[in-house]
Design a protein around this nucleic acid. Structure first.
Lengths: 206, 206
DNA sequence: GTCTATATCCAGATAGAC
DNA sequence: GTCTATCTGGATATAGAC
């Protein structure tokens, strides 16, 4: 086989993988791992059911790969946010706004949320997925640090920082679910409503 | 068959139904409808798999019955709350506190939440379940009314009341999920963190 | 009312042809 | 790389005995 053909094949293969993952993400998010049939994925991807096994060993493997993507993206974003030269309040604001607008612009964001949720809630997931979910605490830690900073500089309310981080994440998670369920109808609520949990007086200009 | 035996049988039957529902609730909540096998339910209930069909026509029927219970309880509680002789702020406070402490005291509360969530998110649920989910707007309406009242009397912030109701429910929902996932480890965060979304100055004494 | 045994079906995964 | 055909296993649901 010539190098050219080899390259071409690789491209096709990558494209297929992308295609499969993208379709599987939506299906897993809206039907759940167990209810999503392997034929659902192959049909959505316009390939035969047999061919799917050429790319992935099992349904579970696809799920795990997507879940890993979801966490990688989320944690990377959180760490970038933390490292930005912004005040704690600005960071929290940015996180909320970015997430809320991400829901609107990019359906995948909401789907990734649903995937993470599912993996967090359900016991009936692959062991590998359970391992990935354990990395969740990293997300809480980043936000806890930002909140603690904001308390030190006096802008944030003085509730337990860990509690605040929990409420931060669970609230956004709740909104992400709502968004995914609402679909096109979803209209992001004013970010300042949420910010009211963190600071005493929300400036109307922001 | 004598009346006494008939009564006894009815009692047994009712007890069994209760037993089945209670076990199924936990299983559905933690594994999901699709991943929960009918044998999971029968095993948890200490009855044979065949006997389960004596009480329920199918797995789906059990799910629907539980979902209906969940909504009935939730909506009833919301309407009672609304009718209490309390200020809007007191009502919101009570709702948050009751829900948070309900999570702690009664595992079923959190499980019901997970069930409703599942039914809201997943497309792969029985048609009857989809119908029930449509009643969801009632919950949002009650809270929207309370918030609107609170805005009229000047205690609540003046964001869009519907938005605030959405954030209210989605936040509590997010917390319920977190609680269910954490299990015994769950410690309810200070309710005042959430109340900060609604009013300008949270009194430290409450 | 309860159990065990069985029929049926369907989804996951593999094999082999092109 | 891709498809069709097939095997296998497991889950739902039913039948029939006690």
């Amino acid at each position: 086989m010539s190098p050219r053909n080899k390259e071409l094949n690789e491209e096709i293969k990558d494209a297929r993988r992308e295609q499969i993952l993208s379709n599987a993400l939506k299906l897993f998010a809206r039907k759940g791992l167990a209810a999503t049939k392997i034929t659902d994925i192959s049909t959505a991807s316009n390939i035969s059911q047999g061919l799917l096994y050429h790319y992935y060993k099992s349904k579970e493997q696809i799920f795990v790969e997507l879940l890993r993507d979801a966490y990688d993206k989320m944690i990377a974003a959180a760490l970038v946010l933390e490292s930005l030269p912004l005040s704690p309040l600005e960071k929290i604001k940015m996180a909320i706004e970015k997430l809320l607008q991400g829901f609107d612009e990019n359906k995948d964001t909401a789907y990734y949320y649903l995937l993470i949720n599912q993996a967090s809630i359900f016991e009936a997931i692959p062991d590998e997925a359970k391992e990935i979910v354990k990395g969740r605490f990293l997300l809480y830690d980043v936000i806890t640090r930002i909140i603690t900073d904001g308390q030190k500089d006096g802008t944030f309310k003085k509730y337990d920082a860990k509690d605040m981080a929990v409420v931060f994440w669970t609230s956004l998670n709740g909104l992400a679910i709502y968004n995914a369920v609402q679909g096109e109808k979803f209209k992001a609520p004013d970010a300042n409503i949420l910010i009211g949990m963190f600071i005493e007086k929300v400036s109307p200009t922001n």
